[in-house]
């Protein structure tokens, strides 16, 4: 390489880039652009081929009550899962960060939900939620309450999915908080203790602000996850009853593969991507300047 002419160096450069570039273009850029284009075309059928229809798909989407329903479901789902799982993750991390007997076991126990396959998690919770014979109903009946069809009732189904998601995510986020906590110097707490600061005060004044970079990272992950959830719905509810637990990505999946309307699915996908982009930008610009990075 030392003797290569500038022209040759260019070629080498491109050759080295090509494999990665091909993969990136074939599996990320091309599909994104194709999706964007598809959203401006009509659904093709046996008698009518697909044709350009401008914003008609978007108009139809705005008229589609199910779209609005899944969008709000998604909002509730995000609001229900994110703050709770972050709060639980921080609490668990603070707990296992102290030197306790059985600390290693505790850390592993908290992390277990994360390493289980999604489908297995969903199956476990399917058993918990099953009417009459499920774990929750058995306990409720044991203490004298009547059972409830948690996943069959439109009023409780989204809550049931939220609880399961929190259970799964809190342990995962805890690992990040635990790593961050172990990097905080012990002297900070000691210095505060000498001044008479309570644990509570120290947490809000020092620990929590210093964990903000982790919180931002976890927050972005949590938001992405709340829009990415498909597998649990697939096993537990199929989005029902009456779309009460349907979320945006699952609705896209239904449109593409159950109703065979890839163009409407593309339209919804474009909206999903736009939403994610806006959220990511907001997080970076609003939160980032208030975060202390070391």
């Amino acid at each position: 390489m030392r003797s290569a002419s500038p022209g040759m160096r260019h070629i080498y450069g491109w050759l080295l880039l090509t494999p990665a570039a091909i993969l990136l273009i074939a599996f990320t850029h091309y599909p994104t652009i194709a999706t964007f284009i598809d959203s401006f075309f009509s659904k093709s059928s046996a008698i009518r081929p697909s044709r350009f229809i401008g914003f008609s798909n978007y108009d139809a989407m705005l008229e589609d009550p199910i779209f609005w329903k899944v969008l709000f479901n998604n909002l509730w789902f995000a609001l229900g899962t994110i703050p709770t799982s972050i709060a639980i993750a921080i609490s668990m991390a603070l707990l296992v960060n102290r030197s306790l007997p059985g600390q290693g076991f505790l850390r592993m126990a908290y992390f277990t939900p994360t390493i289980l396959p999604m489908i297995a998690v969903a199956n476990i919770w399917l058993f918990f939620y099953t009417p009459q014979i499920g774990l929750i109903d058995q306990i409720l009946q044991g203490i004298g309450f009547s059972g409830h069809n948690w996943l069959g009732d439109p009023n409780t189904v989204l809550g049931a999915v939220i609880v399961m998601t929190v259970w799964k995510e809190a342990g995962f986020f805890m690992i990040f908080y635990l790593a961050a906590l172990q990097h905080l110097p012990k002297e900070l707490e000691e210095a505060a203790k000498l001044e008479g600061s309570s644990r509570w005060y120290f947490f809000w004044r020092v620990t929590f602000p210093l964990l903000m970079p982790t919180t931002l990272f976890v927050l972005i992950n949590a938001v992405l996850n709340s829009f990415k959830l498909v597998d649990h719905l697939f096993v537990l509810t199929k989005g029902g009853p009456d779309n009460a637990s349907n979320l945006l990505l699952y609705y896209i999946y239904e449109n593409a593969f159950s109703y065979f309307d890839p163009n409407y699915a593309s339209t919804l996908t474009v909206v999903l991507l736009a939403l994610l982009a806006i959220i990511a930008l907001l997080q970076f610009f609003l939160l980032d300047r208030r975060i202390h990075y070391r």
Binding site: P185, E187, E190, K193, L194, G196, S197
Partner: peptide, 28 residues
């Protein structure tokens, strides 16, 4: 420790990295 009427300077200084000098000094 807070009731022993002692102040302490740590080897690592133990300054709060996200607080400015003023807030660090008046923390206690």
């Amino acid at each position: 420790p807070a009731k022993r009427s002692v102040s302490m300077v740590f080897q690592s200084y133990a300054l709060f990295p996200h607080l400015d000098v003023r807030e660090n000094i008046i923390f206690g």
